[in-house]
Design a protein around this nucleic acid. Structure first.
Length: 798
DNA sequence: AGTCAGTCTCCTTCA
DNA sequence: GAGACTGACT
């Protein structure tokens, strides 16, 4: 009984310590052990929960749920805790601290926290530092899927054929490589564009399919050609010791499946795994988290199925929809209280999203009953629309004393920024555009980085080809091709062939130019060994003639490009200052992993514009949504498939829920897009919002919504055969033997489930030690479930 | 090797 | 309507 009194008092005290959270948030924080799904609606304080939960684990372990009291506690101790309830929080916390055994606290190094962007990871680190101290914070493994996987590959990659110095190819590198692959294979590049092949490969890698598996599944000319190109592409990647972004995940999964040491290292170390933005994970990432958390099963995933907007790049919403079905003992907590938006905005968002079928279903509510209605305006064309937005911002700034940083304009596609930009330029209001061409994708930056890559690793043929004649040094395609061929024939890198160019008769004429280039690089290598990064970049610009080339470009363009290059030098200075051993290869790695949104500064005095996709996770007092028209939002391309349309609706939901205080929706009678005039109807998503939420009702002279405009999804879309074919497991050697004594089923078996009834197994694939079945139930649609937990048995009967 | 004119394409994007 | 790419010409 003593124990119970003590643990009750401890619980009450913990509740007090976390009384700045609501009940659901507290539950989420206090649930430390076992599988946990947190469905966090937009603006429901998700990050707060994540940070508080980790801080709680480190400081108090599992104290709230535990019924164990420390040895030798007496009624007097219980009294002390009860008295602490009246103390100020900090003293109360200190009192409780004294009753937590060191062994019961969860060590920071055993926590793995995965986020979606670097920005989210950094934010989290900063907040954690304040709560648990920098020493603890530094021990938590936190980062994006990619950064975590790279750390693992740097450590264990050698075991699966990736020595430490591997490089990462970005989209541009990939495209260059694929262009070469297509050309060399003699494939008709009209039918197989680099873009389409790369996107195919990316989807395959998301699904963990190797080139061999793809070849086996291929059922027609097109798919077998794809598989063939995939195979050659992968071969060249591997021989360059390079990985593309999808490889980073896929090869880490392969590492964990093939190498027991790596797997047990991860499983034993990461006893607590947290994954943010779970609705946007793909199959490979799902398998990765399953593998890592399989031993201790302390897996917490957070996300919002209503904000899943990355289907087009392989995200599988089923991961979050089925989490609690696959893992029957998973606890589910819904965070539905919204702290961000006023009621009209939230009601509008709810009204839109409730039209989706495939969702967990939740209803956001707010205590803020007040708030301005949603503004809806129709303008005659897109210039008028842009002017309306600029005028409104000017007026709100004057009338409400708002700062420019309060305003955001969110659009469906980057092409829409043009008119807005023009209007802002004319008005003189400062603005910033996020997205579009990223800093590190600019040509001059990529060129300089290519120089650095070659200095760092002269056998990087791809980067070498990029800069060999940039600035122009009279080394033409013919010469480059000859070098490449010789390199391939002799099994050497292009650089070493060039270095000894005079040894090859075929290069006799170009030899002086080639050796001049290699001496340049070798000279820069010496500088790299002796000087700081910024000095090196400066020397690269001087000695290669790149700076004088930029200076020679007349007008504004040369200037901006010089500015960009100088910006890169400042980045290098900053990197040198913030990293103790700032090596060239570390810098290159960091650079390849940053994105635009990571650099977004919300306090800058300027209006910000970006796509709705980029705005996920952000919030603004005033939001403008231009172009809410059929064919734009939802986009034309999405209107054919119900699933695509649901994704667009989720995107609209994300857009609306970014606004805190005032939402402006505009649409235009006429819109010039891609050089053609369009006359679009009001977006169906706007029509889904009840009229009373608008300041003025939608204009009636527009053709109103017709029943035929609304695509009604079937309750659970049956899987398409094509998709099933693609989801077959890895090559056989890749698959771990399934553990457990549960009965094993194969595709085609008819099974029975206590809730879902009779169904047929569509696929069975190994996921770590378990098997994931995909079962098409006769009356309940298709479900994915894990073999160990699913209560299925063989169906006996006619 | 470099330039220019004509042709083609065009959603969203993270690491 | 703008940027990327291609092919012919200098």
């Amino acid at each position: 009984m003593k124990n119970k009194h003590f643990t009750d008092a401890r619980r009450r005290l913990l509740e007090k310590l976390y009384d700045h959270l609501n009940d659901m948030q507290k539950q989420a924080v206090f649930t430390v052990n076992g599988p946990l799904l947190i469905l966090a609606g937009a603006g429901s304080g998700k990050t707060t929960v994540l940070v508080n939960r980790i801080a709680y684990m480190i400081r108090y372990g599992n104290a709230y749920m535990s019924n164990e009291a420390p040895d030798g506690v007496t009624d007097a101790d219980t009294k002390i805790l009860e008295n602490a309830l009246t103390l100020p929080k900090e003293e109360a916390a200190a009192t409780l601290d004294a009753y937590i055994a060191e062994a019961d606290r969860i060590p920071a190094w055993s926590i793995l926290s995965i986020t979606f962007t670097n920005k989210a990871a950094n934010e989290m680190k900063q907040r954690l530092e304040k709560m648990v101290g920098s020493e603890n914070a530094a021990q938590i493994w936190s980062g994006t899927f990619h950064s975590v996987c790279i750390r693992l590959l740097r450590r264990f990659g050698e075991r699966i054929g990736y020595p430490r110095g591997f490089t990462i190819y970005d989209a541009d590198d990939q495209k260059r490589l694929m262009t070469a692959v297509i050309k060399d294979s003699g494939t008709d590049d009209k039918m197989f564009s680099p873009k389409s092949v790369l996107s195919y490969i990316s989807r395959q890698k998301d699904e963990l399919l190797t080139p061999e598996a793809c070849a086996k599944e291929a059922k027609d000319y097109r798919t077998s050609k794809y598989a063939e190109l995939y195979k050659e592409y992968q071969k060249r990647l591997t021989s360059a010791n390079a990985l593309d972004f999808d490889d980073i995940i896929m090869q880490t999964v392969r590492l964990l499946r093939e190498d027991d040491d790596a797997l047990s290292y991860c499983q034993n170390r990461f006893r607590y795994v947290c994954v943010d933005e779970y609705q946007d994970t793909n199959h490979a990432q799902f398998v990765l988290t399953s593998l890592i958390s399989a031993k201790y099963r302390n897996l917490m995933v957070v996300g919002d199925d209503d904000q899943s907007i990355y289907r087009f790049r392989g995200a599988d919403i089923e991961n979050i929809l089925n989490f609690d079905r696959e893992i029957s003992d998973a606890k589910v907590i819904k965070l539905e209280q919204n702290y961000r938006s006023t009621k009209p905005i939230l009601d509008a968002a709810n009204a839109i999203i409730k039209n989706n079928q495939g969702r967990h279903g939740k209803n956001l509510w707010t205590q803020r009953e007040d708030g301005e209605k949603v503004s809806l305006r129709r303008l005659s064309n897109q210039s008028e629309e842009a002017r309306y937005i600029v005028d409104t911002i000017t007026e709100l700034k004057r009338a409400e004393g708002r700062s420019l940083s309060d305003f955001a304009i969110l659009y469906r596609m980057n092409a829409m920024s043009n008119n807005l930009e023009g209007a802002f330029n004319r008005s003189g209001i400062p603005y910033r555009i996020l997205g579009g061409l990223r800093f590190y994708e600019r040509k001059e930056i990529k060129d300089i980085l290519a120089y650095l890559c070659v200095i760092n690793n002269p056998s990087d043929n791809l980067r070498l080809k990029r800069i060999i004649n940039e600035p122009k040094r009279k080394i033409g395609d013919a010469t480059v091709n000859a070098v490449e061929e010789l390199a391939g024939y002799h099994g050497l890198s292009m650089f070493s062939v060039m270095r000894n160019a005079s040894d090859y008769p075929a290069l006799a004429k170009a030899a002086p130019k080639l050796t001049e280039f290699t001496s340049l690089i070798l000279g820069l290598q010496e500088i790299a060994g002796a000087e700081n990064l910024d000095v090196l970049i400066d020397k690269v610009l001087d000695l290669t003639g790149y700076r004088s080339m930029l200076k020679a470009i007349s007008g504004e363009e040369g200037e901006t490009r010089l500015e960009n290059v100088n910006e890169l030098i400042s980045n290098a200075v900053e990197f040198t200052m913030t990293h103790e051993e700032a090596s060239l290869s570390d810098f290159l790695e960091e650079v390849s992993l940053v994105s635009d949104i990571d650099n977004y500064d919300p306090s800058a005095e300027a209006v910000v514009m970006m796509t709705v996709h980029s705005a996920k996770g952000l919030e603004f007092p005033v939001v403008f949504l231009p172009g809410m028209e059929e064919g734009i939002f939802p986009s034309q391309l999405s209107s054919y498939e119900p699933e695509e349309l649901e994704e667009e609706r989720r995107l609209a939901y994300v857009a609306v829920t970014r606004a805190k205080e005032h939402l402006f929706i505009t649409h235009s009678k006429e819109r010039l897009l891609y050089g053609k005039s369009q006359y679009n109807k009001l977006s169906r998503f706007v029509s889904e919002i009840p009229e009373e939420l608008f300041d003025t009702p939608p204009e009636k002279d527009l053709p109103s919504r017709r029943a035929s405009d609304i695509v009604i999804s079937t309750s659970k879309p049956k899987p398409k055969i094509a998709d099933e074919m693609l989801k077959k497991p890895f090559t056989p050697g890749f698959v771990n033997p399934a553990a457990g004594k549960a009965e094993h089923f194969d595709a085609g078996d008819v099974v029975e489930h206590p809730v879902f009834g009779v169904g047929m197994v569509i696929s069975a694939k190994s996921v770590g030690p378990d098997i994931m079945y995909e079962i098409a139930f006769d009356n309940s649609g298709t479900k994915k479930m894990m073999g160990t937990y699913a209560k299925i048995k063989r169906h006996i009967g006619a």
